[in-house]
């Protein structure tokens, strides 16, 4: 750390430009943030909301896409009984301001100059930072092969269907439904297991970069599977979304 030269991450005013339903319980929100410094795929921001009486609440949310100049995109999953997420998904209107600080986090990131194959394993709303990596790959014109294994309750709960449906040159997308499957779907509903990761991931000897994001139990299970399949634990990066607070 360069003593004395470190500048505090500033709070900036972000204005909601557009909010689009992503699923029945999630909203993709684009904010205008003057002087946004840019970010890497996988990073997150802190949002600070202030009520009229001065009460404040802060939450962290993953960025869903590369920055488009001074516009950033988040996808917010409504947490039942949450304090912040229902406001963001249901109440906030275009033109409304909120404060934002970031980007934050330098570990769970994919860099466009990386050449290793990439395995992304998403559980539910954990797909957000992983989709940002797929979009960053496309924006950079990278030809690094990606595989996304996306565990989600039902087809209606999928985020970014249009984007991920393909064809995506060099990105394989596999859905693993846990509760309900489309008609004729070959895989019965169920949690991701060793066979899913073995079939739809990369062999360990290709030394892929692995990114796993989702609820704690999901991340623990998938990370354990990857280790058991011979992946180097140092190449398995995890980010865990707790069901707390929202």
């Amino acid at each position: 750390m360069a003593g004395g030269t470190v500048r505090r991450l500033a709070w900036r005013v972000a204005t909601l430009v557009d909010g689009t339903p992503e699923t029945a319980s999630a909203r993709t929100m684009t904010f205008h943030v003057p002087d946004w410094p840019g970010h890497l795929a996988g990073q997150h921001v802190d949002l600070r909301l202030t009520a009229e009486d001065g009460y404040q609440a802060q939450r962290s949310y993953s960025l869903a896409a590369p920055a488009d100049a001074d516009r950033i995109t988040l996808t917010i999953q409504r947490v039942p009984d949450g304090e912040v997420s229902p406001y963001l998904t249901d109440t906030m209107k275009p033109g409304d301001p909120v404060e934002v600080r970031g980007p934050v986090g330098g570990w769970f990131v994919w860099r466009p100059d990386s050449t290793a194959p990439v395995l992304l394993v998403a559980g539910g709303s954990g797909v957000v930072p992983l989709a940002a990596m797929i979009r960053a790959r496309r924006a950079a014109g990278s030809r690094v092969p990606f595989r996304l294994l996306y565990s989600v309750r039902t087809p209606a709960d999928r985020y970014y269907s249009a984007d991920l449906a393909g064809p995506l040159d060099g990105v394989d997308v596999t859905y693993a439904y846990t509760r309900a499957v489309p008609d004729g779907w070959p895989r019965p509903p169920g949690r991701i297991g060793v066979a899913d990761v073995n079939t739809h991931g990369w062999p360990a000897d290709l030394a892929p970069e692995c990114f796993v994001c989702g609820p704690t139990g999901f991340v623990e299970a998938v990370a354990d599977i990857l280790v058991a399949l011979g992946h180097d634990p140092r190449r398995i990066k995890t980010e865990r979304f707790g069901p707390t607070g929202g």
């Binding site: 909301l49 009520a51 009460y55 406001y87 109440t91 906030m92 404060e99």
Partner: peptide, 15 residues
């Protein structure tokens, strides 16, 4: 600097 986010009420008050 702090701006008010219209329509946000929050739930708990700072403990």
């Amino acid at each position: 600097m702090s701006i008010v986010t219209p329509g946000f009420h929050g739930r708990g008050r700072p403990a």
